[in-house]
Nucleic acid binder design. Sequence first.
DNA 1: CTCGCAAGTAAATCACAATTTACTTAGCAA
DNA 2: TTGCTAAGTAAATTGTGATTTACTTGCGAG
Lengths: 187, 187
Amino acid sequence: MSDGSDLRKRNAERTREAILAAAQDVFSTTPYGEASLKEITHRAGANPALVSRYFGSKEKLFEEALSGALDVGMLTSVPRDRFGEAIAELFTTPSQTRINPLPMLIFSAANKETQAIAVALLHKKIMQPLERWIGGADAAARAAEIMAVSTGFFTFQLILPLQPFQGRADEGVRQWLARSLQAIIDG
Amino acid sequence: MSDGSDLRKRNAERTREAILAAAQDVFSTTPYGEASLKEITHRAGANPALVSRYFGSKEKLFEEALSGALDVGMLTSVPRDRFGEAIAELFTTPSQTRINPLPMLIFSAANKETQAIAVALLHKKIMQPLERWIGGADAAARAAEIMAVSTGFFTFQLILPLQPFQGRADEGVRQWLARSLQAIIDG
DNA sequence: CTCGCAAGTAAATCACAATTTACTTAGCAA
DNA sequence: TTGCTAAGTAAATTGTGATTTACTTGCGAG
């Protein structure tokens, strides 16, 4: 039976997961159009033809990769009165292990198909729960504001690098991030 | 001689400008990879082969289009004590006439080449003059913060549409934008 | 053991758009 | 008027990468 410690060479489930993991890796560091299935499957030790078999298409693979990476818990697991501080700390502490979904979101701008996929998933997996967590009449606006600040920050930290946002960023930038985000939560 | 009112059918200067204008139009509304030279030159009433002649390549055309669109005057022509208010008003007042360079910046994430082009132009045409206009020790950080907020806003207004940012946006969003930007200027 | 099928592969196909090439034509100059 | 050159065009070329196809092989059931 296929439990997690299965050592067979051929194992559809395992291969599928390996491709998905590689896709999250690649899609969060490489623009969608430049992320090739050859590269992704190579990293997974698999063959490009399997993407079609297991996911249907590159776009569907992207959808599943993004869906798996989007996790509102990142935000909502933090106490409200420390929100800004905690998120600013998280954003400015580079982590090799955890994959960051925001670059994938930014890269999804690369074509209309992936834009549509991203908008739908963003609503379902982030905006709706985030709005509920925030609560109140203008929760939707405040949730959108949090996304705007976060995405803007990562755009210029990871994709179009500006010096002040590089690496751990400086104290001033961290404080700005913390205060901006806290102000949105406090309303 | 070729003054601006020249009516000849064949006029290299005129054609070049027409292609450039069409490119700014298309590149600011269509992801780079989906913006075809066929579409751009069609709008300009010209032929795709002319891009190669007048600009060298699609990337060079993009560079010139972005360069022409990036204009820090948008920001620095505003009095400092009304900065937030004025920019928020500008950002939330949809204009068909003026082309918005920020989507082009966001779309430039689509590949490493255009990223590099965008970063270089962003520095030269926006960050440097903006930092000088802001002044002080942490001017670079504050300039980057302004870009982050602005780009984040347009990402979710124009590219991955979130309801609260659509159209003129609501009063709460405008106030948030105004206050966020003003706070960065005030330090 | 061996058969059948699921898993995996290599190579062909398809699609598409940028760029190049070889050609046509408008417009100016002598 | 005639030719020469710059401007413009149509079609061929190229390159790339996703997807499909036809094939091979591992592996477990019976």
